[in-house]
């Protein structure tokens, strides 16, 4: 049942341990609960515990809570400067010059978390060029999802 989640997490070259007993699925949405909530949850719930993400057309769309869980592991991640942080949460891609630190994979095509200088997760993206490549600038990480999405959702509602 949790394959879409574990497959997604593996793209960051890491793993998280999830107790299958505590994962709830509501249609295509996944939630992580604890034993206490498990006793209280009833049929027909709308949302429960920690939202992990959803599948749509065979693709997994992670929640920001799941990204934070991944960030706690030894996952691919980059830390960006303050200007790049702002641009990233506005939906923009990451330029090479905005990257301050790289941890884990630098390989083109891999997923990487994008963190700010405080180590807080802002979202994730796809590495477009090997991070070892000696270029002065240019787009390096393609923005796939960022926390600015909360504002976009508010506007949509």
């Amino acid at each position: 049942m949790i394959e879409p989640i574990t497959d997604f997490v593996s793209r960051f070259n890491t793993r998280i341990s999830l107790d299958q007993r505590l994962i709830l699925r509501k249609k295509n949405h996944y939630f992580l609960i604890d034993d206490n909530l498990k006793r209280s949850v009833r049929k027909g719930f709308f949302y429960a515990g920690t939202y992990l993400g959803k599948t749509k057309n065979g693709k997994f769309f992670p929640s920001f809570s799941l990204l934070r869980l991944i960030a706690e592991q030894d996952a691919n991640q980059i830390a960006v400067d303050e200007k790049t942080e702002w641009l990233f949460i506005c939906g923009r891609d990451v330029f090479k010059r905005g990257i301050k630190k790289v941890k884990g994979s630098k390989r083109k095509g891999d997923y990487t978390l994008v963190l700010n200088q405080q180590g807080e997760c802002l979202g994730f993206g796809k590495i477009l060029r090997d991070l070892n490549e000696k270029i002065k600038n240019g787009v390096t990480i393609q923005n796939i999802s960022d926390i600015g999405d909360f504002l976009r959702r508010e506007k949509k509602d």
């Binding site: 604890d34 719930f45 709308f46 429960a48 515990g49 939202y51 920001f64 809570s65």
Partner: peptide, 10 residues
């Protein structure tokens, strides 16, 4: 989700 609440059932 935004405020990282994990003890709520809706």
């Amino acid at each position: 989700e935004r405020c990282r609440v994990s003890n709520t059932i809706v």
